[in-house]
């Protein structure tokens, strides 16, 4: 990726800061911000766009190349709409990514069960595919009550999602329509 004419200052002077305080014989408190700055120098920077409202503010994401995890997410000063600014939500994006409460494994809830069970992706997708086929085959309607051709699947419906990228939205709707779904809706309707 190209950062273009971005004016975001490269963090090359960090060592100076350390020396300044180090020379005086004490550390900054809290020390975390300082330590983070050091690792920021080593991080990979990528640009993104905020996932919350639809203003489309620019983000700079710094990723620790060793752990592959984000170490800092802040506004992109070069972005012409946001000019580096972020609201409470945008400024919290780091916690969306680096959040121990994210669900990181597929899970299944059986009929009548009171709990989730972790399953493999392969198992999940195979089971879903089988069910899609079963419902589609059973509910596929070539002609409606008037005898007009409709080629649709009556027993399946979908909602979602404005949280997906354009490319994902596009293949999702093509996938659903190829299955014959007509009940396709999402956030724009509510």
């Amino acid at each position: 990726m190209k950062l273009g004419r971005r004016e975001f200052v490269k963090l090359t002077a960090a060592a100076t800061a350390v020396t300044a305080f180090g020379g005086l014989g004490f550390d900054l408190a809290p020390t975390k911000a300082h330590a983070q700055l050091m690792s920021l120098r080593k991080g990979k920077e990528t640009t993104s766009v905020c996932c919350y409202c639809s203003v489309g503010c620019g983000l700079i994401v710094t990723t620790d190349e060793k752990t592959g995890r984000a170490i800092n997410i802040e506004g992109d000063p070069d972005h012409p709409i946001s000019e580096g600014a972020l609201c409470a939500k945008g400024a919290a994006t780091f916690q969306l990514a680096e959040n121990p409460q994210r669900i990181t494994k597929p899970r299944y809830r059986a009929a009548g069960s009171d709990k989730w069970e972790e399953k493999s992706w392969d198992w999940m997708l195979n089971e879903i595919a089988k069910r899609v086929k079963k419902v589609r085959d059973a509910s596929f309607t070539e002609k409606n009550a008037k005898g007009e051709i409709v080629n649709r699947t009556e027993g399946l419906a979908s909602v979602g999602s404005a949280a997906m990228d354009n490319e994902e939205c596009w293949i999702y709707q093509a996938f659903l329509r190829s299955l014959g779904l007509t009940y396709i809706e999402h956030q724009a309707r509510i």
Partner: peptide
């Protein structure tokens, strides 16, 4: 028992960046 407060984002400022709160302000 360490005392705390705003640091002026001295680490950022020393590296030519604005304090985090200033950069975020629209």
């Amino acid at each position: 028992k360490v005392m705390t407060k705003c640091t002026m984002c001295l680490d950022r400022v020393q590296n030519g960046l604005k304090p985090a709160c200033v950069q975020s302000c629209p």
